[in-house]
């Protein structure tokens, strides 16, 4: 059986879970077995509807302590559940909690793990999982040698596959150890889609000259319903908040669309965005390295192009 971990925050299932469920269901199909899901804590979502992503059962560990994330506690509980349910493949989203949890679960199960998987495993001869390495500049095919396999899936690399079905929900009784940390506060930027979950991203670099010029970029983002990001010097200079910094030393993202405005495309910047499906580059320098990594490019002054692009998007939306 393939068991998929449901990640939640604020009693809501995260979007990356839908992709992990779809991925786990596809692995189960390939192995001729079932896909089931594991939920720790309570959520407001309708659990039977998770069947839509291909799982037949949702095992629910209904304990309020598990509403908040504690890596040590969650790892103990998940590993216990895997053993009790006899799962042979365990799937996580390679998101913030998945990164903290999956390797610890693998240790507790004495299982081999591949984190950051980019496609379905090859099970024709053993169990080989391909993952991104060298910050997206290469792939490695890795054989897992142990009876139990743990995989975490790179976000936005498999897609969400849904069809109408329902899952059965079963309460699972697993003892929950005492908390190992105490969460004292949570600060969330309200009303924004977290960058790692955004499908559309508009990003600005030093070419925009100063924080006072960000209005045109924000207008473009708004016209698309996109999240905003920036290059490292921009966040270092406090033109934009640190959580917008993408790249090798910032956040790594893989949206469907990444629009880079006034960003040169340094190798360390590309390392954070090169898994984006479509890249649009707007830069006045035709020699900017970013054009080599782009699908679409516009050579010219961002201060003219960006407002024109926003107007074109609004026009196209109005006529749709």
């Amino acid at each position: 059986m393939v068991l998929i971990y449901i990640d939640q925050a604020d009693q809501q299932i995260k979007k990356s879970t839908q992709e992990a469920l779809s991925y786990g269901a596809a692995i189960a199909k390939q192995l001729g077995t079932t896909a089931e899901a594991l939920l720790l804590g309570n959520v407001s979502d309708n659990l039977t509807a998770l069947g839509n992503y291909g799982v037949t059962k949702v095992h629910h560990i209904n304990n309020v302590q598990l509403n908040t994330f504690d890596a040590k506690v969650n790892a103990t509980v998940v590993a216990h559940a895997v053993k009790k349910l006899n799962a042979t493949v365990v799937v996580f989203a390679h998101n913030i909690n998945g990164k903290a949890l999956a390797p610890a679960v693998a240790v507790k199960l004495e299982a081999g793990i591949v984190t950051g998987a980019s496609s379905l495993p090859d099970t024709t001869n053993g169990f080989v999982v391909t993952k991104t390495v060298f910050s997206g500049k290469a792939f490695a095919a890795i054989q897992i040698e142990t009876p139990i396999k743990v995989i975490s899936l790179n976000q936005n690399s498999f897609g969400i596959h849904a069809q109408e079905t329902t899952a059965i929900v079963e309460i699972l009784d697993i003892p929950v150890p005492a908390p190992s940390i105490k969460i004292t506060s949570v600060d969330k930027i309200v009303g924004e889609i977290p960058l790692t979950e955004a499908t559309l991203v508009v990003s600005g670099g030093r070419g925009l000259k100063g924080p006072e010029n960000w209005g045109i970029l924000l207008d473009l983002a708004k016209s698309l319903g996109a999240s905003t990001a920036c290059s490292r010097p921009v966040s270092d200079a406090d033109w934009r908040p640190h959580h917008e910094h993408v790249g090798q030393t910032g956040i790594q993202i893989a949206p469907n669309l990444y629009i880079a405005i006034g960003i040169s495309g340094a190798i360390q910047h590309l390392a954070g965005v090169n898994r984006s499906k479509t890249i649009v580059v707007i830069n006045k320098d035709p020699e900017a390295p970013f054009f080599k990594a782009a699908d679409y490019g516009v050579v010219g002054d961002a201060f003219e192009i960006v407002p024109a692009l926003t107007a074109a998007i609004l026009k196209s939306k109005a006529s749709a």
């Binding site: 693998a106 004495e110 299982a111 081999g112 793990i113 591949v114 080989v128 391909t130 390495v133 997206g136 500049k137 290469a138 792939f139 490695a140 095919a141 890795i142 054989q143 897992i144 040698e145 142990t146 090169n274 649009v280 580059v281 054009f291 080599k292 990594a293 782009a294 699908d295 679409y296 490019g297 516009v298 050579v299 010219g300 002054d301 003219e304 192009i305 024109a308 692009l309 107007a311 074109a312 998007i313 026009k315 196209s316």
Partner: peptide
């Protein structure tokens, strides 16, 4: 070891950027 690296692979190179004139944003959209 619980895992072994079998092979590495480089991603397919982008087929080349499609350039759009700065005054043709409707076309980009």
């Amino acid at each position: 070891a619980t895992t072994t690296i079998k092979t590495f692979e480089l991603p397919l190179a982008k087929t080349g950027v499609k350039l759009i004139d700065a005054d043709k944003m409707d076309e980009l959209v």
